[in-house]
Amino acid sequence: AVSDRLIGRKGVVMEAISPQNSALVKVDGETWRATSGTVLDVGEEVSVKAIEGVKLVVEKLE
Rank of each mutant, 00 (worst) to 15 (best):
G29Q: 05
V54P: 09
V58M: 01
E52P: 01
L40H: 03
T38N: 09
G53F: 05
V46I: 11
V27H: 02
P19E: 12
V12P: 02
S22F: 13
V27W: 03
V12M: 07
A50E: 05
V57C: 06
L40A: 03
R9W: 06
V48S: 01
G8I: 02
E62Q: 12
S47A: 09
V46E: 01
V46C: 04
R33P: 13
L6R: 03
L40I: 09
V42P: 07
V57L: 08
S47I: 15
N21D: 08
A50R: 09
D4I: 13
V39P: 13
T38Q: 14
L61P: 05
V27T: 01
V48P: 01
V42Q: 05
K10W: 10
D28G: 07
V54F: 14
L56Y: 03
T31N: 09
A16H: 08
A1M: 12
I51H: 04
V39D: 11
L56M: 05
A16K: 13
V39A: 12
V12Q: 05
G8E: 01
E44H: 06
G29L: 04
V13S: 02
V54I: 11
A1C: 13
R33G: 09
E44G: 05
T31C: 15
S22W: 13
V25S: 02
V58E: 00
V58P: 00
S47R: 15
L56C: 01
G53K: 03
V27E: 01
I7Q: 02
L24P: 03
K49G: 03
A50F: 06
M14R: 01
W32C: 01
L61Q: 06
L61D: 06
E44S: 08
E15N: 06
K60C: 03
L24C: 08
I7K: 04
S22R: 06
K60W: 03
A23Y: 15
G29W: 03
I51M: 06
V42L: 06
S18R: 08
V57D: 02
T31I: 14
V46P: 02
L24E: 03
M14N: 00
V13Y: 02
G37S: 14
T35W: 10
G8K: 03
